[in-house]
């Protein structure tokens, strides 16, 4: 088995890197792939929280690097899905505790046992970013339709293009608010794609369900009714090479559609 190493990065913080990582990872595992997620945000780990695994972590990536445990011992299995594992970041150390070379070696080892290795990258463009990117051959750049996030994404794309090992990168636009786009108060997906001139892999609508799912430690892809969950499941399908049309957010979030869905739900889920 030779797994694909995909780094999920954004430049700007708070655009939804970790949420994206947790959801794409879970969706890929639900689709039958063996998936491992690596949290490289040393000192500021959060991926464990989003997956609800915070109480199960014994060893971290730093323990692996400093040879206090074997790599396999440090992999935390997901509660629901045995195909899904997490290699957690150390909360008490800083970015210098793991080097580019060490991360690359870990990715190489994991490739043998997993289909997908998702690397959660810290915000910024410093050493933490360099480390996270080191072992990857693909990248997903997460941005939102806001100026600062798009600007930072542009910077990240420039840095990724300079990396020989990164063979391809795709754009994921998070937190799209169709109402604001419709009223010309927010840049549209098309605007962002045109400005960054990058290939799109996903459009995720703003969804209050993300907050509750984070609070519960349960990725939103497990919620069949959530639109954001559906969007993330579609991203996973596209990563696997399946062609899935992008959601028509304007239509999906319109009142008429919601009413229709409500009634079809009442009538016993008949379409």
């Amino acid at each position: 088995m030779t797994g694909r190493v995909i780094v999920i990065t954004s430049g700007k913080g708070g655009v939804g890197k970790t949420t994206t990582n947790a959801n794409i990872g879970t969706a890929l595992a639900r689709a039958g792939n063996k998936v491992v997620m690596i949290d490289t945000d040393l000192g500021l780990r959060n991926l464990d929280l989003l997956l609800g695994l915070e109480n199960r972590i014994v060893y971290t990536i730093v323990d692996v690097v400093e040879k206090r445990c074997k790599l396999k011992q440090a992999l935390v299995k997901d509660k629901k899905n045995p195909n899904l594992c997490l290699l957690a970041a150390a909360q008490t150390r800083d970015k210098s505790a793991v080097t580019e070379k060490q991360l690359k070696d870990i990715c190489e080892k994991l490739k043998k046992d997993f289909d997908f290795i998702l690397v959660d990258c810290p915000a910024g463009i410093e050493q933490g970013f360099q480390n996270a990117v080191a072992g990857a051959s693909e990248a997903i750049v997460v941005t939102t339709p806001e100026m600062s996030a798009v600007r930072d994404a542009d910077r990240i794309i420039g840095l990724l293009e300079a990396k020989e090992d990164i063979k391809s990168y795709k754009l994921l636009i998070n937190r799209v608010r169709p109402n604001l786009v419709k009223s010309n108060d927010m840049m549209s997906v098309e605007d962002v794609v045109e400005i960054l001139s990058a290939d799109l892999i996903g459009i995720i609508p703003e969804d209050t369900g993300i907050i509750t799912s984070t609070n519960k430690g349960e990725p939103i892809v497990n919620d069949e009714k959530s639109l954001a969950g559906q969007a993330y499941r579609n991203v996973a399908q596209r990563i696997m090479g399946n062609e899935v049309p992008f959601l028509d957010l304007e239509k999906e979030t319109s009142v008429v559609t919601k009413v229709k869905k409500f009634f079809s739900h009442l009538m016993g889920k008949e379409k």
């Binding site: 806001e146 100026m147 786009v181 010309n184 108060d185 927010m186 840049m187 549209s188 400005i195």
Partner: peptide, 19 residues
Amino acid sequence: VNAKDVARNRLRVVLMQDR
């Protein structure tokens, strides 16, 4: 002028400077 166009134009200029 709508906020979307303002954002798009400002972003274009600033990205060109960055690039």
